[in-house]
Design a protein around this nucleic acid. Structure first.
Lengths: 261, 261
DNA sequence: GCTTTATTGCGTTATAATGACACAATCTAA
DNA sequence: TTAGATTGTGTCATTATAACGCAATAAAGC
């Protein structure tokens, strides 16, 4: 699935010879969700010099499956493999590309992007969203960006290009899929409590849920194992710990949770 | 939304100068659903000489929104405008393109595609599905293809490239969306009966539904107007005719039919 | 060590949605 | 005129959902 050979070697080579290896016109952007301290966050990168935040993204290699490009970006940034990653939308507005961003980037190295360079054209970007275990990820920034941050989805500022729109669409998709997919396995640590997963659902849906009804519905899905341990530490009654029942979880992922019809 | 200026002027120009006007690497393909004689069908085109069937599709112009390209293809083929059209997936397998198809096409005009021509590279295609009123569509084939046909979704043969996969994915999406979107308005004629819309649902879901429960649920959505007419003609009791209540239908399209959570 | 406080486990009850089925009405073809 | 197939309308049992009660308990404060 995920090839992780470093690409490109240098920025200058990217600019001048990128078109030999990179698919012209298609890129990927990843909305990487993590859940930490009861807050749903996404991974953002700060673009050096440009002083603006963006989604982790990248180009698609000429002979690379688009999905694999997304896996590559994800693995590169998080060090994680085998992850819940799903394509959710392609963004094809002709004005979505912003050369300024690239200009600033290359300017730093005294390079000016030629007018007809492959980088100046509009890229259609395919959006993917990933759900990852916050605690397991080891984030890497690279030469193209300086810093990264996990940002509360409720407090995201202005992002580069159309990335705010992309995040919105990702959240919308996540909300919809919550209704028929078992979300949580990849966002939560192996062992988790009902209050924790409830908070996750409440954050995604942006809505308070009744504790008792939530638990009944969740357990009704039959994809959890109840452990004989509790999570002590809070100044209250200790809630039980649960894990996902992998077999049943996989089945639910395939078949969906409802059916309705 | 839909610009319909004819493009390209000739095949030869397309080959030689297409790269000046066409976005390199991104195309659109449309799965156009129609419902006729109680059968769900899609519109297919037969590629001249290549003797194989394909989805209606096209290139994206350099300064064109990808969605608009899909609208353009749809309008070109069906003569219809203002249609339910929805992007459902981007297909980015590096082996999905098939130059043979283009070769055969151009061969007819004594043209050989140069090795490095823009047409030979892998195109990532964005899939759209449309729901149209079968009776209102006037289908046009063009110079690139010879004939068209409405084909029962249950009886689709082998299509060009990965088009079978694209159709599968479109159907899957349609099935999922059936659960929370009011499907039917664009597939059915203005006036329709309960048995008709039920048959539509049964076809999409590939499953028999109880007539009485179906009606109760449908009417429960509150998006229909019951008319004081019946559809006579069948050798049985005449069913009542219904129309969509436009206002409530639009609201349901926006808000969804359920919510669940 | 005992009490307080917030929170959890495990319920109950009323209402709404769903699935399975019954029966009379009615349209056309024979 | 009748037969046959199909529709309109309704019932009933089961299941799902929403709203809420109360005892148990972990940690902090006194």
């Amino acid at each position: 699935m995920s090839k992780t050979k470093p690409f490109p070697p240098t920025l200058k080579q990217l600019l001048l010879k990128g078109n030999e290896q990179i698919h012209p016109g298609v890129s990927v952007d990843c909305v990487i969700f993590g859940f930490h301290e009861n807050v749903l966050k996404i991974l953002l990168l700060e673009v050096k010099q440009a002083n603006i935040w963006s989604l982790p993204g990248g180009f698609v290699l000429k002979n690379e499956e688009v999905d694999d490009a997304a896996y590559r970006v994800l693995a590169l940034r998080t060090g994680l493999d085998n992850i819940f990653l799903q394509q959710f939308h392609a963004f094809g507005n002709p004005n979505r590309s912003d050369v300024t961003f690239h200009q600033l980037k290359f300017q730093e190295y005294g390079i000016k992007i030629p007018k007809d360079n492959w980088l100046t054209q509009r890229f259609v970007t395919v959006g993917y969203y990933a759900l990852i275990d916050f605690s397991a990820a080891i984030i890497k920034a690279d030469s193209y960006d300086s810093t990264y941050a996990w940002v509360d989805v409720q407090k995201i500022g202005t992002l580069m290009m159309d990335h705010n729109f992309i995040v919105e669409k990702a959240l919308e998709t996540l909300r919809t899929q919550l209704a028929y997919l078992p979300i949580g396995k990849n966002l939560l640590p192996k062992k988790f409590t009902m209050p924790e997963i409830q908070k996750l659902y409440e954050t995604i849906l942006n809505k308070k849920l009744d504790r008792r009804n939530f638990q009944r519905k969740m357990l009704g899905f039959g994809i959890f194992n109840k452990l004989n341990e509790t999570r002590k530490g809070g100044a209250h009654k200790a809630p039980f710990l649960y894990t996902f029942n992998d077999k049943k979880y996989q089945k639910a992922l395939k078949d969906g949770l409802y059916g309705s019809w």
